[in-house]
Computed example of a mutant assay.
Amino acid sequence: MARQERSERTMERLVMAAADQFASQGFVKASLADVSRSAGVTKGALFFHFSTKDELADAVLARAQDVLETMVEELCEAEPIFLQVVVDLTHALNRLLRDDAFVMASVRITRERVNGRPAPLDFYPLWLSRLWRLLDHARRNGELGRSVADASARTMVTAAVSGVETLTWTRVSRKETEKWLSDLWELVLPLLRVEGTGRTVRTVAPLAHAPSLEERC
């Protein structure tokens, strides 16, 4: 048991170190030697757990998925309106791309790794598929206008994700990006949602501590 616990701790240090290295140096530039040195483990220990840099990158992408799913769960606990969750998740992305090493690393892995077709856990497929699923929930919940095509709603979400990631990549400040997002949602939400239902959707970033509700996504 003690050996297994040590092995798990070593793997955790390696994955965290890889996220930091990929986020700061990029997937191409960061080496396995950099990761092992940052984690404080030998190269032998690294290769025991991960035989290639791609395997290590996959582990980082899986952790980025955990971050996303945890965020979605928390937002769904706080909001019964799925369109609000979509808006809040794009604001959360603005924060995560600056504060969370796993999400930051997932962008650089996706941008720099040439592996043929995009993998499901790459940054864009992961985030877009999750947001599109929330739009499906919004459709079933009667939040999207009947004249709004599913493809149009997905295009809007894709534009929001791409815009946040691009603004972050070009070092636009978090505050400026938040304002851009709020203005974007202010413009397009009237085109997406059903009017006259009494359901208001906030376009600005959510408060840090929102009240918890029972409904989940």
Score class of each variant (00 low, 15 high):
T203H: 08
A210M: 15
L135I: 08
R146W: 15
L83H: 04
A59N: 00
R216C: 12
E195T: 04
R130K: 10
E178M: 03
E112H: 10
S152D: 15
F22P: 00
M71Y: 11
A33D: 15
G40I: 07
F27D: 07
N115G: 15
R202Y: 13
V107W: 06
E215P: 15
N115M: 14
K43C: 05
D34R: 08
E143T: 00
M16E: 12
D58W: 11
R139C: 10
D88E: 10
V15W: 03
H49T: 09
V164P: 01
D100P: 02
D20R: 14
N141R: 09
E214S: 14
K175W: 11
R117D: 03
E12Y: 05
T166E: 08
L128H: 14
L56S: 06
T168P: 05
S106Y: 00
P120Y: 02
W132A: 04
A153M: 02
D66C: 10
H209Q: 10
A208F: 14
S51Y: 11
S212R: 14
E73N: 10
L97Q: 05
S51N: 10
V86M: 11
L128F: 14
V148M: 03
V72N: 00
L213P: 15
E165D: 06
K43N: 12
E214V: 12
W185M: 06
A119W: 15
L192Y: 00
C217M: 02
P211L: 05
L68N: 08
V67E: 01
T42S: 13
M16N: 15
W132V: 06
V188H: 08
V28E: 03
W185N: 08
S212D: 15
K43I: 14
K179S: 07
R63L: 06
Q65H: 11
E12M: 07
H209R: 14
R6Q: 11
R193D: 05
L68Q: 00
A17V: 02
T110S: 05
A2N: 09
W127T: 05
T168Y: 04
D54I: 05
D66G: 13
A210N: 10
G145M: 03
F27W: 12
T168L: 08
T177C: 02
P206Q: 00
E195N: 13
N115I: 11
D54S: 09
W180E: 04
S38P: 11
R193A: 11
S173N: 08
G40H: 05
E178V: 09
E55C: 00
R111E: 04
G142N: 00
L167W: 14
V114P: 03
L207Q: 15
V103F: 11
R139V: 09
R202E: 09
E8Y: 07
G44D: 12
A2D: 13
E215H: 12
V194D: 01
L144D: 01
V194Q: 04
L207C: 14
N94G: 03
A30N: 04
V161H: 07
